[in-house]
Design a protein around this nucleic acid. Structure first.
Lengths: 407, 407
DNA sequence: GCGCTTTGGCAACACTGTTGCTTAAGTGGA
DNA sequence: TCCACTTAAGCAACAGTGTTGCCAAAGCGC
């Protein structure tokens, strides 16, 4: 393995990945099969957390044979990704040996590029931060200075902890951008980035695989594996603007152009006040206007109407609220949104809304989600399309990748 | 194979399928691998249509080896699902042998249960109707009479054409309902169906696998394989009500409770006129109100505002318009919706909307889509979750199923 | 101590896609 | 006409997956 076999796609030629980009799904061969099942087991190990799972439970949940699970877990143990951790009390026979994920076996870097600062996280396999750095940053300064600063911070965060097996770096930044190519578009307030191939440039600089996504998507990803883990939910972020990250059927939904989640400019009052976008009655405009006159309940209500629309359209299980503005008065927004959802549910006949509204988000959430852009694919079908640029995508599926990438 | 090995799940026990229903993704074994790849190839054959595809092209698109494709296509030919069909002009070497799908090798029945009539389609593998029947039906009459009538019509439509290899029946009816269990809920105007296990009852009656889904979802499915085939689109249906079917990333999105697509009660004018649902300013209410005063452009505009919200939120490629009301003046609705989308796109800086608005839908679209509920899983990752109830789901994946089910 | 239950591994196996090589069937130039 | 070259497809041997059948380990309860 040479030092930089993951960077910019220097071969635009007819690799398997390129020919598949046309849209067709990929065929499965034996290595892919192996990787898929390994990733699946790894995902169940992650879900089990500290408690661990027995081989037979894994077999039941994957619908694989116990023997197959034994082989797979043996490989995972050989790679240091899993260990045996005690045994469960007997239920009348031989007690089950518990298996547990080894979080520290691999790591990923999560980078949150915001307009005024950068937050970096070095996360282990469980997604837990091993090291965190926070540095002021001027996103409008242009690519050169920003990349230099990011590279410096990455080196610093890697130095803070002894983290073997760094698999790559995920970058979350304000949209719009194209997740599949890692190219930024006209970022609000920093138009100089338009067309800049951030993924490839940073991959070359860091000598690591890099994945780029919108900040709201990263936040949703960070929350996708929390307690409860609904398979479909929406994360609504109310800060200086209003955006959303959608997790549908357990996978982040980005849309064909990474444009999904433009929640702020949903029109809910079509002859309402004008929005900066030029139209009338956008949720964002209503929220911001209410906030400007210190009418928090009003802002919550506007948000709630949009959220209710979302819930009806997508039948989602949960609404997560986050962002600096929400964080100031979480309960006001929680109640306001819940109330709208309850009203809407009542109109449809059910007494209580089928969705729960939950406050989420912390200072490092987006950066942790950015790390999930790298970690996600290791754990099976959970996290959207496989977008980590790498050669031989077909033969080196998710799970295998964790094993191949040794420190 | 006994006569009824697909009907109601008589073993609520610990089958693989049952244990997996808890949420985890399924592991892949060799039969599943084989089925997946066969389905993938079958899907490409379907996409190629009359023209056919060469083995090497299939290999390139699936990222499988030419040799693997040779083996797979040999199996498909042995099962009668594919044939060699001429050869392409040489490009300097041996000319490519073209392979083509044999549409008549298998069939599926599509049943559209509407409030006042039933439309039945006997569709071949290409989705083309081989026979069609239309019969008046009173959905409020209750389960007994309706099931009897449906069984009679199914027998009749099967008698109309010599269709070997009927794989099952798809049923499309007004929601709400649960696609995964095939149980109806409080169907508007026919509350007697609430809780009725339509799928299992009909499967027992017809001695065929049955899949149930909402009519709007079926329509979307029918349109998912038309020319152009965008990977993400929304089908908006404006008839006596307003609903939507969402195809996201190439798969029908139903939501956790088959509730997705409730487009009609999106609020776009929060202090607008009251809707039957109890709230104000729902798109449906605005559309119907406009129609009531013969204001077609007004209805189109209301629809357009909702559609624009949808496009922004989900970043979809296309809006398909259908339903009886749209069919009366398709161009008015087309223009009205397009105009709203253009406005919205202009606000975001791009000159033209990134989505195309297309009229779709015909009298038999929903029934054809219902047939796709059965046919879809044969053709690979395209059509949503595998919901055809069958034993040994894990070991008998999609493609295999077509082969196993001989007349 | 002994039968029973449950957990997990070993060995042989069936069957997948892959690799290496060969054959088929054309084109184009000497 | 012949021959090199190109492209398409198949045959045979192979590597490696999960599965099957059987057996050992380890605890419970009589």
């Amino acid at each position: 393995m040479t030092s930089n076999d993951h960077g910019p796609p220097e071969h635009p030629g007819a690799t398997a990945a390129a020919s598949l980009a046309a849209g067709a799904a990929a065929g499965f061969n034996l290595p892919a099969l192996r990787g898929h099942n390994a990733a699946l087991v790894l995902g169940l190990l992650r879900a089990a957390g500290e408690e661990g799972v027995s081989r037979l439970e894994l077999a039941a949940r994957t619908a694989l044979t116990p023997q197959a699970v034994s082989k797979i877990t043996a490989r995972l143990r050989a790679e240091g990704l899993a260990v045996e951790a005690g045994r469960r009390a007997s239920t009348g026979g031989k007690p089950a040996t518990l298996l547990r994920l080894v979080p520290g076996a691999r790591h990923a870097i999560g980078i949150h590029l915001d307009r005024d600062e950068a937050v970096l996280v070095l996360a282990d396999l469980a997604g837990a931060p091993v090291a965190v750095r926070r540095a002021p940053l001027d996103l409008t300064a242009g690519a050169g200075p920003v990349l230099t600063a990011v590279a410096r911070e990455v080196a610093a965060v890697r130095a803070e902890a002894d983290a073997p097996g760094v698999l790559g770096a995920g970058v979350a930044c304000p949209g719009p951008l194209d997740h599949t190519t890692g190219v930024l578009r006209r970022v609000t307030g920093a138009p100089g980035w338009d067309g800049f191939p951030l993924r490839d440039a940073l991959a070359a600089r860091l000598d690591l695989p890099v994945v780029v996504d919108k900040d709201t998507n990263a936040a949703a990803l960070a929350l996708a594996h929390g307690p409860g883990r609904p398979s479909s939910f929406a994360y609504l972020h109310l800060g200086t603007g209003l955006g959303a990250g959608l997790v549908l059927d357990g996978a982040l939904y980005r849309g064909p152009r990474t444009g999904a989640g433009e929640f702020g400019h949903q029109v809910v009052w079509w002859d309402g006040p004008r929005c900066a976008c030029g139209r009338r009655g956008c949720v964002e405009a209503l929220c911001l206007a209410a906030l400007a006159r210190d009418d928090l309940p009003g802002a919550a209500r506007a948000l709630g109407v949009g959220a209710a629309n979302l819930v009806e359209l997508l039948d989602i299980d949960r609404i997560l609220l986050g962002g600096r503005t929400v964080a100031t008065h979480p309960d006001v927004f929680l109640c306001g949104v819940t109330e709208e959802l309850t009203d809407r549910a009542a109109a449809r006949g059910s007494a209580r809304p089928s969705v729960a509204v939950v406050p989420a988000d912390g200072p490092g959430t987006v950066a942790q989600g950015a790390a999930q852009l790298i970690l996600g694919p290791l754990f099976g079908a959970s996290a959207g399309s496989a977008a980590v640029p790498q050669r031989g995508v077909v033969s080196e599926e998710s799970g295998v990748r964790a094993m191949a990438a040794l420190p």
